[in-house]
Amino acid sequence: KKRQPKSPININEKDYDIIDEKYVKISMWNKRYINTFTIWLFKLIGNNPHYGIEAIKDVVQKYDLGGSHRINGAVVFWQRDYNNQIRTGKIMLYNQQTGKRIKDENRPNMINWVHYYLKKEHRLKADFKLKQCFYGEHLLKKYPNAIVAVFESEKTAIVASIIFPDLVCIASGGLGGLNLQKCKVLAHRHVIFFPDLGCYQQWKAKVEGISKHIFFASYSINDVLEDNATEEERAGGLDLCDYIIKSLTNNN
């Protein structure tokens, strides 16, 4: 853990557009919250005596785990910012048995986005200005004194939030999603960064660079996976979620 000199941070700069809250509500209507991702969650955690179905219900509400009517069965990971405004939503389809992502055959190697579809349908202005935030960022304001855990994927943040309820679990949305702009909301917080296997050095360099501009009350880059992974696990680029799944499957 390290400390740095204090520096002022303005997280209220409004150089972006937002999406109407009604689209979040629409994603929850007609039981769309029962999608391939939440079905997999229930199979993994809902039947576990330590957690149960209530844990799934709580996380669905906590993270607005709605469904998409554009891609049947897909979950929408809404990016709700520190001020509770919707920046966009990431639409992803999962295998409800394995929890693995199913990629869109029509848009290979690309993520589907709510703002993309709303612009296409002329429900957003053509020059809609997107500025992404951390997934789960709204929870920082709700739990101001909790330790923050930063993961790469939304899936890992959600699963980790169930297993470690005392942490505020958020996600950068990918390896390249960790940047100075997003991290402004982490000023004055105790933060643990959890890079995926093989990404430790990249995240370490990024975080140390960011720490020169933002005052963290304390921060660390977790290296437990990096120090203990097998070569096979390292080649597979496993993250903390994979280890949690393995432990739950083995009732450990």
Rank of each mutant, 00 (worst) to 15 (best):
V60Y: 02
E121P: 10
Y94Q: 07
F164C: 05
C169K: 03
N30W: 06
T249K: 14
R234D: 00
D81L: 11
R189T: 04
Q202A: 11
I210Y: 09
Q85V: 00
R80M: 00
D196A: 06
G176S: 06
Q132G: 09
T38A: 08
S220C: 09
W40Y: 15
K57I: 07
W29A: 13
F164W: 04
K6N: 01
I163L: 06
Q96K: 15
N228V: 06
C199M: 14
N10E: 11
S211C: 12
A74P: 09
I86V: 09
T38G: 05
Y143L: 02
L178Q: 06
K155I: 05
I214W: 12
V114C: 09
Y82C: 09
D196K: 10
N252K: 02
N10G: 07
H190E: 09
I210F: 05
G237E: 11
Q79N: 13
K184N: 04
F164G: 08
R189Y: 12
G173M: 01
Q79P: 08
Q201G: 00
N250G: 03
G177C: 01
H138C: 04
K120F: 13
N250H: 03
E121F: 09
L44T: 02
D242E: 09
L140G: 01
L41G: 14
I86E: 03
P144M: 12
N106F: 02
P8L: 10
E152A: 15
G237K: 15
L124M: 01
Y117I: 08
Q181L: 06
D227T: 03
P49H: 08
L238R: 00
R101G: 01
F37S: 10
F194C: 04
W40F: 15
K182T: 00
G73C: 10
A235K: 14
F215K: 08
F151H: 07
W40R: 06
G236E: 13
G177D: 04
N106A: 04
I45A: 03
